[in-house]
Amino acid sequence: MERSIAKDVGFYVMLGIGLVLMFIGPLIWDLFQIMQITQYVVLSVYALSLAYIWGFGGILSFGQAAFFGLGAYTFAVASINMGDTTLPFVLSFILPAAFGAGLGYFMFYGRLSEVYLGVVTMVVTLIFWKLINHTAGPEYSIGDARLGGFNGIPSIPILNVPGDPSAWLDPAQMFQVFMAILIIVYVVLRLIIASDFGRVSVGIRENEERSSLLGYDIRRHKVIVFAIGSGIAGMSGAMWATYQTFIDPNAFSMEMSAKALVWVMAGGIGTLAGPILAVVLLQWLSLKLGTMHILNNYVILGGIMMILVLLLPKGLLPTFQALSLRLWTIGKSKMKERTPKGKAASDV
C-alpha cells in the first residue's frame, strides 16, 4: 500500500497546490483571509502530527494537546526571555519530542494495550491542564515570563527574522513561512513513511506480533515515531502561540486533543492529505455553525466525532477515493465489458 514517492501523483498534486498557495496567496487575499488561512495552516501541522503517529505508526494518542500546549508554552516562555524567536522555535520541537520520548518509554516498553495507551495519554493532558491552570500567582514565573494560570501568557513575540529580534514578520510573511513549514513537514513525513523506517512502522501498525517476530524492536520503533509526532505537535503549538501572540491553558484542553482526532478521523486514517483537507473543511464548518448561535462548539465537535465513528469509520478521503474508484472501474468495465483488477487507494 505504501508506494514509493516517485510514482505517487497525489503527493505532487498536494506539493504543487501548497507551493502555489504559498506564493500566490498573499497577492490575491486580503488581510482577514490571510489571517484565517494562516490559522488553517497551523492547525494542519498539528493535524499532521497525529495523522503520522496514528495512521503510519498505529499509535492512537488521546493526548496530542499535551504536546501542542507544551510546545506553545515552551515557545512563549523562551521567546519572552530571549527576545529572539529562532531558538525558542527550535526548542518548541525538541522539548515536546524529548517529553514524548520519555512518556513513550513508559508506555511502549511497558507494552501497554491500546485502551491503556489512550487513557494514559489523555490523563497526561489533563494533568498538564490542571497544573498550568494552577500557576496563576506571580511566584510561578520562569525568568521574565509569568505563566499566568488560567489567564494565560499575553504578548508573546511574533516570529522574527533569525538573529534580528526587531525584524518582525508581517501577516503575509508569516503565512508564507508557516506554509513553508507545513510543506516541509508534509514532505519530511512522506519521506519518512517511504523510508525503511517508515515501512517497518507501517508493518508494526498492521501486525505487531509478526513485526517483532521478524526481529524488529517494536518498542524502540514506537518510541521514535511517538517522539517525532510529539515534536511536530509541539512545533505547531509554537506556531499557534506566535500567531495569536497569546496562549492560555486551553491549549492543553480535551477539546484540543479531540479536534486532532476528529480531523484525522474525518480525513482518513493512513493519509496525510486527508487531515489537512479536514482541518479546512471542519474549521470552516464549525465557524459557520458557531455563528448560528444555536449549537455550541462542544455539541458540534462531539456530534461530528460520533457520526464519524458510527457512519464513516474510514474517513472522508478514503471513502471518497473508494467511491470514485468504484465509479471509475464500473465505467471502465462497461466500456471494455470486463472487470479490471482493483487498484490500491493512494496514500498521499
Partner: peptide, 8 residues
C-alpha cells in the same frame, strides 16, 4: 472515540 464524542 465514540464515547469521547458523547462526552463532548
Amino acid at each position: 472515540l465514540a464515547t469521547w464524542g458523547l462526552s463532548l
